[in-house]
Computed example of a mutant assay.
Amino acid sequence: MSTLPIYETFYAWQGEGCHMGRAAFFIRTFGCPVKCPWCDSAGTWHPDWVPEKIERFSADELADRAVAHRAEFAVITGGEPTIHDLTELTAALHRRDLPTHLETSGSFPIKGDFDWITVSPKWAKLPLPENLRRANEIKLIIEDGESVEKWRAQVSPLTAGQVVWLHPEWSKREDPAVMNSISVTVKTQGHPFRAGYQLHRVYNVDSLDSGARPIIPLGGNLEIGY
């Protein structure tokens, strides 16, 4: 049986999107070639923050961890999880009757059987059109006052009418240009746009589980929220 490199696993609740507030078990894979400059999981790829040792686990080992909790579903995230073949892992989770969600940039082919797919496009490596159409929801990271319109031009022709969440990039969550652009878009455009936020960070819920690693402050600047 093959194994996957895993950065962390932990039990919390989903802090974003259509399943916000529901109990979830998170499986965060190691590795990411996209490398966003504001990444909040830089320990999965950044040379300054990668742990000395990354453990590998089989699909059954990970699925057993997930069902040991009272989670409503499992979330496979990263890093960028789709650089790995997730077929065995999704099959193992489904054998245990645990719905399986994916969080991805959409930049690579998706290998695995998922009940829910969240695609969050990144400029460093744009998503594959087929992944945007396959997504159940789309999450756009809004970095400045022009981000919404830039993403609308890039993504809208390739979607299939899914909910599109507009999330302030975390270090810009108090930037009026960012926040106002989200509010104005939702108020003037309506569906498919919704205002989003990382609610789990407000509650600091991930840290309540001993399996979660601390959020890595990319660049080491806690004052700007990385």
Rank of each mutant, 00 (worst) to 15 (best):
L89Y: 08
A135D: 12
R194Y: 01
V119D: 01
H84N: 14
V164G: 07
H167L: 13
H101M: 06
S156E: 15
L166A: 08
E103H: 04
E169Y: 09
G161K: 14
N136Y: 08
E137M: 05
W165R: 02
K139W: 05
E103K: 00
V148L: 15
E130H: 08
T82Q: 04
G161N: 11
N131E: 03
Q198A: 13
G106E: 13
V184I: 15
G190A: 08
Q162S: 08
T104D: 06
N180W: 04
W165C: 01
W123C: 01
P176W: 00
G145D: 10
G112C: 02
R173G: 10
Y197M: 06
T87Y: 04
N180K: 11
F114K: 03
V119S: 14
P192F: 14
E130S: 11
D144R: 07
R134E: 09
L140Q: 13
K187T: 08
P176S: 07
W151I: 08
P168H: 10
S183P: 00
W165L: 14
S183H: 02
T185W: 02
E88C: 01
Q198H: 05
Q162V: 07
V184Q: 07
Q198P: 07
P176F: 04
R194N: 00
L89W: 06
G106V: 11
R173D: 12
E137L: 03
P157A: 11
F114V: 07
H94R: 13
T100I: 04
E130Y: 07
Q189Y: 12
A91D: 09
V178P: 11
V186A: 11
Q198F: 11
P121V: 03
I141F: 03
L199D: 01
E149N: 10
D115H: 01
W116D: 02
